[in-house]
Design a protein around this nucleic acid. Sequence first.
RNA 1: UGGCCCGUCGUCUAAUGGCAGGACAACCGGUUUUGGUCCGGUCGGUCGGGGUUCGAAUCCCUGCGGGCCAGCCA
Length: 782
Amino acid sequence: MPPNFVTDVIDADLTSGRVHQVVTRFPPEPNGYLHIGHAKAICLDFGLARDYGGRVHLRMDDTNPTTEDPEYVQAIQDDIAWLGFEWDELRYASDYFEALYQLALQLVERGLAYVDSQSEDAIRETRGTLTRPGIASPYRERSVPENLDLFRRMRAGEFADGAHVLRAKIDMASRTIVLRDPVLYRIKHAHHYRSGSSWPIYPLYDFAHPLSDALEGITHSLCSLEFENNRAIYDWLVAHLFPEPRPRQYEFARLDITHTVLSKRKLIALVRGGFVAGWDDPRMPTIAGQRRRGVPPAAIRAFATRVGVTRSPSRSEVALLDESIRDALNPVAPRVMAVTDPVPLELQGLPPELFEVAAPRFPDQPDSPTRQVPISARLLIERDDVALEPPAGFKRLAPGRAVRLRHAFVARCDAVELDEEGAVRAVRASVVPDSLGATPEGVRVWSAIHWVDAEAGAEAEFRLYDHLFDSDDPDAGDVPFTEHVAPDSLVVRLGTVEPSVLKDAPDTRYQFERLGYFWRDPDDGRADRLVFTRIVPLKDGWSKQRRAASPAGPRPSEQASDVDAGTPGPATTSPAASSRAASSVAPAQDDGDPIARLEGSARQQAERLRDQHGLEPAAAALIGASREFQQLFEQGLAAGAPGSDLAAWIANDVQRLRKLHGSVPSGLDGAALASLLTLVRERRVSVRSAREVLDEVARSGRHPETVVAERGLALQADPAALSAFVRDALSQHPDEVASYRAGKRGLLGFFVGQVMRASGGQADPAAVRAALTEALEVPQDG
RNA sequence: UGGCCCGUCGUCUAAUGGCAGGACAACCGGUUUUGGUCCGGUCGGUCGGGGUUCGAAUCCCUGCGGGCCAGCCA
């Protein structure tokens, strides 16, 4: 697995010794089928465990008895195994019901949870809104004994559904809504597929999930971005109930792909609405659908690797998936000929003793095995390969033109017969002599086309699947997404295939030359009937060229987005498009006076800082608005630091530390800051080193002078040492020197970087720059 | 409207203060008995504004854009 932000975290945890072995988990709820979005998560969870020599648990997150079904438990395992992963342990959240109950009791005993007897509606209404805090339940201050009694009776089944819930006692006014006393347990007299009727209460996700992780010793709990907010309760619970090392949650962007939908709800709608033939319809993004279609699991793993793991919400092009599939199939799929839309071809002049030709199964490989392909005077060829009046750029069969019959002769078209409708009924052609396995002299061969012997070929059904939606974003716009289902996402044709396929293993994946990758449908095509499912078409330069040249207007998908873009009202353009549009028309902005935006004493302070100390309004506003910063500033000033320098350091670097730690580190005071500034002013450390010193001072509270001395960060000003660094940098990068002298002046920064790094950040950058410029400007002799 | 998160070629993603790189897509060319593969090349990007720094995609401020959160779902 290529490095990503999660592997960065793991690397840091391993080197710091916070954890010694990586333990991950994949936690599906058994209430539906896995899809390719889950596959991304699976590749991450299982791949991490594999790459780090760790362990991975498959855990059924089965805490809601009314939605879950054992059928899915098996399907999920099958899908993961098919993807090529093995779990170290299979777990069930329902196995932890007793342990979780005990943990909840602990919370109650410690006054950290209470039984709320409000109605569901009342709880919702008192939770507040995004902008308004919630208000406390009248039951919030129940005594511990009363809560204990009530919660035990909930567990004993004494109350009806909805009569009470257990809530964490956190903060009804929290700006993080998930912390406004989240519900931990609800009463549900329902049969659970594993625990039966032994539990009348069930824990909610926010309670069960973090604690299941902790119970299992999970170290890195990966989930998708929509659980970001839930991390607050995750951390609260494990911090109150478990010692370190506690599991930590990290969120990544879920997979999204063009020309499909990936939400459970929409997938169900497609199945229920009859838009597809079922969960394993080859057009479905489900694992089952992809498997049925013939996609190799390695292709899905490769795709998951190629999209990467980040925290940026993103949407990948389906072309990347298609290409991953072709990539996986191309080296392993034997080539075979099939005709999906047959037209008869009558051949004149075939050598009478010739009944078959040998054709390589892997034409690109020199020692490829071959198969025998029957040939006779009556062949079938693809309708698309014939034109009575060939359009511009057409390279296939037309009257008077000669083409190679793939793996066999060159044939010249003598006539094209049409039926009453003007469609091609048959083609007559003559064999060009001596063209079997040889290039005939003086004949223009336009291209090669595939064919199958009319008599010896095997009749077959071809299911030509394409992307389910013709719109790249079926959800965009104000019509239901199902309106975008492509009518031609499945085209069924009757045709013929060369008989060699009858001898192959039934699960062989082929490339039908010039058409695409196919395999026999595992449900309908493995017995007597030959039914081939198209896994993915080949890239098709010709149809692309025709589409580009076509004056008939945009394709359906383009049409759809055009309509969307032109529709007034709610924005329906893509995120990228709208942000571009917005930024290109954004007026030159007037930030106004940052001090004027402040209120009350903050504003007074800011004005005072500006007027008394001559600070820039931005810095004054920043410092004036924060008591910590003000104190730091005053202290620094008292220690003799110049106001403007002090302000700049506070605004930039102290601000950075405060964001990192949540507050100004206690080790840092104004006096320390002032003496650091003195070091910089007296050119005893570089600014770069000074930052490093600041971090260390903040961490340890030691004096800047001490840190500089101990770490050897004093500014390197010795000209001899400097020029040695410069010489080394130049001699180690001769190519860059040449580029620089050829005019690539941007490389100066590169060289400064090299020298700075070689000096451990201690060189005086201005001096380095000067020395480098001089050394680079004067080319040495030779 | 409060909080949290995210903005790098058309798309996905690297660069951990030091040469903005890769893949897919698009385009052009070469090889080819597949309009495929393979090979070579081209096009194309740090959301805007300010600041810190010798040096900013990266650090700070700000604006803009996007995502998530007000289930007794997960």
